[in-house]
Design a protein around this nucleic acid. Structure first.
Lengths: 251, 251
DNA sequence: CGTTCGGTTGAGCTTTGTCAAACCGCGTGG
DNA sequence: CCACGCGGTTTGACAAAGCTCAACCGAACG
């Protein structure tokens, strides 16, 4: 029941390490419940108590921070198969709200007690959760670099590339059009731009023949060009499968 | 020898959990070596193999990314007692260079094999490393929010507040002047601004009577005002000491 | 006593933001 | 079938924030 595709934890973990059946079962025990959400529905609010974590089953979910002046920041987008909440679990309160971006989305909640038990049962799984969190961290580092030092065009190019590569990781063919349930306001909050400027930059990307984009569908028409414009390097999305068998190498 | 102040791991970990002597010894075994660096010296380059992690003994160290166009981003600043490298350890290569910011700095390197052994020996320490990484993540989230959506004045105010609170955490009295070995070029790379604009904003902060700052010394003259301007909330710096004893609470 | 380095200042320019209007595809109800 | 309204996008005019370049200043240091 929980082995039905790349949107499940077992598949994700197998990208990092080998699992025997007992470990796979442990992971699957995190995906017994299901919650459904509609577009823009909140899973939890900013500042709410950290009680649960989630595995995304379908749809896109975003970590959101609303600012006093009405501005909003999207810190990260979680895609199917992603784990949400590792960052917050060691805090009492959530640092961001969690919202469903797509028309419809499904997540599997599990309690942090459950995670905790799992930590005690398997070092290997613990290490893999560790690796997953560090990958999320790495993703944020790349977005930080982009937002801090690149112009609007490149920020958007980078986000599109990043998302495409991540979607490939869950077996979505991005060579043709793919679902991209993010409107221009979301893109603005993702890149630190204004919606108007996002519109201008997207038009620019289109005019350069890099993407085609409309109403929830994205099509990358020149992947090389887009990656080059964004100075995109996908190393940060690829975990080192060997790290568990680290070998100390002198300089 | 390694219990001599707040710049050691044992002290840091005691902020998260209780340690018995055996665990304290394990941690101290990570701090047997020492490396010294001068201002702007590199500990490792961007893209180099991830072999070691570090504990900062003294001085400030920065994770740096150089961009193709000559721009530079400072991703994070590590202060005494901080662990450097948890983010990169699950990757084959470093995502940033590591540079000594202060006139002089000392770090204790330990191999990732060593970390790995420690993971096998103590779940509690593993979980604490997990918590430490999530705190670093949280820090980056706050900086991301700031860089994405706040103006130069607020970005600087936020960085100063964040740093002050972190310094307090290692027993540095920030009520009076304190060491602030970061020049305006560094501040620019930290906030995504130009050095010239940093100068203007720093002057502005001074004129508003919030800080006094010159040549490596910082003095916060109006902490309330500075925190308010930056919309600074220090929750993200405070780990939840209770998280290991998490209790599942229904909504 | 000159040089150097970091910081400051001013002028002009570029990028991006703001506001407001127009537009467009789409679904709904008359 | 058409008019309408709605949400999201586009466009234009203008304003603001921040960048670049260049000159200048002042403390530290040889």
């Amino acid at each position: 029941m929980n082995d039905d595709g790349p949107n499940c934890l077992v598949e994700k973990f197998r990208g990092y390490t080998e699992l025997d059946t007992w470990e796979a079962e442990l992971l699957n025990s995190l995906q017994v419940d299901e919650q459904h959400f509609e577009h823009n529905a909140f899973v939890h609010a900013d500042g709410s108590r950290t009680v649960r974590l989630y595995v995304v089953r379908s749809g896109w979910f975003a970590s959101i921070r609303d600012l006093a002046d009405g501005n909003r920041v999207v810190l990260e987008v979680a895609l199917p198969g992603d784990v949400i909440g590792l960052r917050d679990v060691t805090f009492r309160q959530h640092m961001t709200a969690l919202q469903c971006l797509s028309k419809h989305g499904i997540i599997c909640p599990f309690s942090k007690v459950h995670l905790h038990e799992l930590f005690r049962k398997s070092v290997k799984l613990t290490e893999t959760f560790f690796a997953i969190m560090s990958r999320e961290h790495a993703q944020l580092v790349e977005r930080m670099v982009t937002v801090a030092r690149r112009d609007g065009l490149r920020r958007l190019a980078h986000f599109i590339m990043e998302t495409a590569v991540r979607l490939e990781g869950i077996c979505i063919d991005v060579k043709k059009s793919f679902d991209f349930p993010v409107d221009q306001v979301d893109l603005a909050d993702l890149t630190g731009l204004s919606p108007v400027h996002v519109s201008r930059c997207m038009t620019d990307l289109r005019n350069r023949g890099l993407v085609r984009y409309s109403r929830g569908l994205m099509h990358i028409t020149d992947r090389e060009g887009l990656a080059e414009l964004a100075e995109f390097n996908d190393a940060f999305l690829k975990p080192d499968i060997q790290w568990l068998r680290a070998i100390d190498i002198p300089d």
